[in-house]
Design a protein around this nucleic acid. Structure first.
Lengths: 216, 216
DNA sequence: GTCTATAGCCAGATAGAC
DNA sequence: GTCTATCTGGCTATAGAC
C-alpha cells in the first residue's frame, strides 16, 4: 500500500519535472531562434540556456526542424490576436487605429524579437505561410473590409481600400522595430533616444493615419 | 618582338578574365547571400552559380566573411543614394515624397531582396552599423530636418518632427516588400494580385502621406 | 588563375548506461 | 528522463599539381 502510494507520488513528480523540462526547452529555444534565426541557432546553445544537454532536445522534439516549428507556431499564436483585435472587434475605424497603435508598442516591448523573427522566417520558408493559413484564428480581413467600405460610403473617412489601409497601419507600427538598427543609424539615435522616438509614436502614428483618412 | 607582343596580349586577356571571374563571384554571392543570409548561404552554391569551384572563392576573397562583407557594402552603396535623394535634393517636401515613393518601387523591382537583406544582416551584426557610418555618403538627416522645420513654421505642412516623418516615409515604402510573405498571407493575395497592390501604392502612399501632413 | 583532393572542424543526431 | 560518448555528414578552408 505504501509502495503504491510512493509510486504515485514519484509519477506525479516526474510528470511535473517533464513539463518543466519541455517548457524550459521551448523557452530557451524561443530566445535563441528568435535572435539568431533557424540557420544561425545552435542546438548546443539552446541546451545550455535550458540547463540540460543536447540529447534532451532530441528526446522531446526529435530534431532541430521540429523544435523550430514549435517555436514558430508559438510565436505566431502570440501575434495573431494582436492583428485580430484590429480586424474583428466592433469599434470604429478611428478607435481601432488608436487602440492598435498604443497596444502594439507594449506588445513589442514584451516580445522584441518576435515580429522580425516571423517576417524573416516566412521569407526563408514560403511553405510556413500555407501551414499557418490552415489554422482557425488566422487573421481574416473580411469584416474589416466591410467596415472600411461602409465608413467610406458614409463619408466618415476618405476613399481608401481596406487592404491599403491595413498595410499602412502595419507598416507604420511594425517597421520601426523590424528595421531598428537601420533606422537608428539613419536618424543618428542611440538606444535611449530611439526609445523616446518610439514612445512619441504611440500618439504620432495614430494621429498621422487619422489625419490622412478622416473627412473633416 | 613577336614574343613580347604575344605576352602582352596574353596578360591583357588574363586581366580581363580575372575581372570577369571576380565579378561573376560577386554576382553569384549577391544572389545567394541576399536570399539565404550569411548563415544560410553555402560557399558551394555560390561557386556553382558562378560557374567555378570553391577554391576560387577563397583565392579572390580569402574567406566567407570577407566575401559577405563585399556583398553587403555593395548592397548598401546601392540603397544609400535612394535615401540621399529624399534627404539632400532641393525640391519641396511634397515633391520629395512623390519622387521617393515612385522611384523606390522601381528600385525594389530591380533589387527585390536587397532591403530585407540589409535590415536582416544589420540586426544580426550590430557592428556593421558603425562601419557604415564611417563612410562618406552615409545618409544624413540635417538638411531634411531644416527643411521640415521651415515648412512647418511657414504653415505649409502640419507640425511633425523630421525624424518621425522620415520614419513614416520609409515604413510605408519599405515594409510591404520586407514583409511580403506575411502581408500576402494577411491580405489573401497571390503574386499577381500583390503586384497590383504594390503598383497602386506608387500613388496611394504619397497621397496618404501628403494628406496627413499638408495644411489646406 | 584554376583545378582536385583533402584536412580539420563543428553541428545535428543517436547509442546505450544509469 | 537524463546523462556521456560517439557517429556521421557537411562545411570552410588549404595544399599542391598544372
Amino acid at each position: 500500500m505504501l509502495t503504491k502510494w510512493l509510486n504515485y507520488i514519484v509519477e506525479k513528480m516526474e510528470k511535473v519535472k517533464d513539463d518543466n523540462t519541455e517548457e524550459q526547452i521551448l523557452d530557451a529555444a524561443k530566445t535563441v531562434f528568435q535572435s539568431k534565426g533557424m540557420d544561425g541557432a545552435r542546438m548546443q546553445e539552446i541546451a545550455d540556456k535550458a540547463g540540460i544537454n543536447k540529447a534532451m532536445l532530441h528526446y522531446y522534439y526529435r530534431n532541430k526542424q521540429l523544435l523550430f516549428e514549435a517555436v514558430f507556431k508559438n510565436a505566431f499564436s502570440l501575434l495573431a490576436p494582436q492583428l485580430n483585435a484590429i480586424l474583428n472587434d466592433d469599434s470604429s475605424i478611428e478607435e481601432k487605429i488608436k487602440n492598435f497603435t498604443s497596444n502594439y508598442i507594449s506588445f513589442v516591448i514584451k516580445h522584441p524579437y518576435l515580429p522580425n523573427f516571423i517576417i524573416q522566417e516566412l521569407n526563408r520558408n514560403q511553405d510556413f505561410v500555407l501551414k499557418l493559413k490552415e489554422n482557425k484564428g488566422f487573421p481574416n480581413l473580411d469584416k474589416f473590409k466591410k467596415q472600411v467600405d461602409t465608413e467610406v460610403e458614409n463619408g466618415i473617412i476618405k476613399p481608401i481600400s481596406a487592404e491599403q489601409l491595413f498595410i499602412n497601419i502595419l507598416a507604420l507600427n511594425i517597421f520601426p522595430f523590424v528595421a531598428k538598427p537601420l533606422v537608428m543609424a539613419l536618424t543618428n539615435t542611440n538606444d535611449k533616444t530611439y526609445k523616446n522616438l518610439m514612445e512619441e509614436r504611440q500618439i504620432e502614428v495614430s494621429n498621422f493615419i487619422i489625419h490622412s483618412i478622416k473627412n473633416t
